[in-house]
């Protein structure tokens, strides 16, 4: 149990610090780590991701539920600290350094160089969630109701800006309607 907490804190500290491009960028690695190194299932990971979607604030607060599922209330606390605290300290230090380098040519290089990497990582995160939700987890066959929901949400959001929170909740309701 204690070893589990140490392992959790190390893994999530690493995930928080590696999240270049935000939370979505780190989803593939988080899924891999929690499913292969801990006993979370793909379905549980997907469920917990969805819970993060319907709570206010940063979606990545979902990591608290991962900690809770794997090691109870203490697990939630440990994962929360590990994921957010080292990253906040790094941001604080890096931002002060960043201000010092204001106008230096390397600052622009880092920004321009990391931007396409961050976008690539976001697409990879999108792919992970699509993989988990648009195909049945058990036999990998396409789930046509889920695919239709994703396609309609994509089309609506490309067409105009609607509060995505509403669309996401509607997605859940529509899926329940079509499968019950």
């Amino acid at each position: 149990m204690n070893w589990q907490l140490v392992k959790l804190s190390l893994v999530f500290a690493m995930l928080g610090v590696l999240a270049v491009g935000g939370g979505t960028a780190v989803l593939p690695e988080m899924q891999h780590a929690t499913v292969h190194w801990f006993n979370l299932t793909d379905k549980q990971f997907r469920d917990i991701y969805s819970i993060g979607q319907v709570a206010p604030g940063p979606n990545m607060l979902m990591v608290l539920v991962i900690g809770y599922r794997l090691a109870g209330a203490l697990g939630a606390l440990v994962v929360g600290f590990a994921f957010f605290v080292p990253d906040c300290i790094l941001t604080l230090a890096a931002n002060r350094l960043w201000i010092r380098f204001a106008g230096s040519p390397w600052r622009v290089s880092v920004q321009q160089g990391l931007a396409p990497v961050a976008i690539g990582l976001m697409f990879a995160g999108t792919y992970s969630i699509a993989r988990l939700s648009l195909f049945h987890v058990t036999n990998q066959t396409p789930d046509f109701v889920a695919i239709a929901i994703a396609a309609v949400v994509t089309a609506i959001l490309l067409w105009r800006h609607i509060n995505p929170g509403i669309l996401v909740l509607l997605g859940g309701a529509v899926y329940v309607l079509f499968t019950h």
């Binding site: 469920d47 969630i129 939700s133 994703a150 997605g171 859940g172 309701a173 899926y175 329940v176």
Partner: peptide, 26 residues
């Protein structure tokens, strides 16, 4: 389970659009 699955499916669409919009330049 089904409610959360529908949310994840909608979120996949949302993530795709966000990635496309943020990455327009790249």
């Amino acid at each position: 389970g089904h409610f959360l699955l529908g949310i994840a499916a909608a979120a996949a669409g949302l993530l795709l659009v966000v990635s496309l919009q943020l990455g327009k330049q790249q």
